[in-house]
Amino acid sequence: MGPSSSSGPGPSPPEPLPRSAPPRSIGYWLLGSGTLVFGIVVLGGLTRLTESGLSIVEWNLIKGMKPPRSSEEWEEEFDKYKQFPEYKILNHHMELEDFKNIFYMEWAHRMWGRGIGMAFLLPAAYYAYRGHLKGALGRRVLAIGGLIGFQGALGWYMVKSGLDEALGTTPNAVPRVSQYRLAAHLGSAFAIYAGMLYTGWDILRSRRAIPASSTTTVSAMKKVMALRTPATGLAALIFVTAMSGAFVAGLDAGLLYDTFPLMGDRLVPPKDEIWSENYTHEGSSLKWPNLFENPTTVQFNHRVLATTTFTGISALYFYARRLPLPVPARRAMQALMGVACLQVSLGIGTLIYGVPIALAAAHQAGSLVLLTAALRLTHTLKRFSKKG
């Protein structure tokens, strides 16, 4: 970036800090809570990849916090697991020691979720008591808290779909959670995470003295501010792409075609494979269920969305390079482009190497890092307007 023209007005003086701004500690608390949510998304991915999510077949908020201790308790827990389709169909050769491994993975996932609830609820109650959670901030915190409670209920609703005993009597059935519920569970976690980060950033920004403008001309500022609309659109597209990835995971669709960019020997699978009659609902000729239930179509959709997302980020990056971006916005744009390149590499690697656990978990984590980078860019651009 070359030096800006000196013909425009100079930087405005720092804005005064709002007198009623909430304490900075609230911002750090929300960002810390967001970090915990990031962790549980990664742990949840590992739980799914190791097929541990159906190992605990009951939901007890308090009693479930204590894992089995004695041999008798372990045998009792294992016997409960044996009553459900995953054991009967897939894991009937499993020994107790193997069961302990998947049990502890799911138990850790549930305990982390409880920890997030406490880490959010207790400080929220304290700040509310001190009168710091008023107006828009109070409504945001209340909404995030409501989502956390909803997320816990949704998690058990998701697990129940994989415990359906009818799966054990259905020919060729594979015990797995509903891909619809999995996507809803992941989407809710993303929403909680985004709400925590954006609110935390808003609070810390409100307490910081920032020049009203880091650009030197009104026309340059308008061009910079215009970036916020496509950046917000890209953040939404990243979210949708991540949710399509949840459908890929839920149907194990990543194992179907392990080549890129071709699917088999062509870019687009045959029409009768994408719009298969096998996925039309009984009594209906509509083929739209293929979009969410046909593994071939689901993988194809994810490829298209991921390619579109990467193309959009690249286009915005190269366009933004021509603008006199303020330093924070330029760094955010560079971070978004860098994470996008890494995420595409992880996605292709996960595919061609047959969905190894390490790469697949990194790819899921990468989707949340990419969303973080996009949100950071939109929030950074939000800081710059004609009045700062």
Rank of each mutant, 00 (worst) to 15 (best):
T297D: 03
N301H: 13
T311G: 12
T309E: 05
H302I: 13
G312I: 05
T350Q: 15
F310K: 00
Q343Y: 10
L305G: 01
T296P: 00
C341W: 15
V344F: 13
V304F: 05
V344I: 10
L305C: 01
R331A: 10
L316K: 03
V344M: 13
A340K: 04
S314M: 13
M337T: 04
T311C: 14
V298R: 08
F318K: 02
T296Y: 06
P326A: 02
R321P: 05
F318H: 12
V298P: 08
T308E: 03
A315Q: 01
G312R: 09
V339R: 04
V304A: 10
F300G: 06
S345L: 15
L305N: 04
Y317K: 04
T297I: 01
I348T: 13
T350W: 02
Q334H: 11
R330S: 08
V304D: 01
G349R: 03
A335W: 11
P324L: 13
L325F: 08
A315W: 07
G312M: 12
P328C: 13
A340W: 02
V304G: 00
M333G: 12
A335N: 12
F310S: 06
L342C: 14
A335V: 14
A329Y: 00
I313F: 08
F310C: 02
T350R: 13
T297L: 01
P324D: 07
T311E: 08
C341H: 14
G349S: 14
R321G: 12
L336K: 00
R331C: 10
P326I: 03
Q334P: 00
Q343S: 06
G349Y: 06
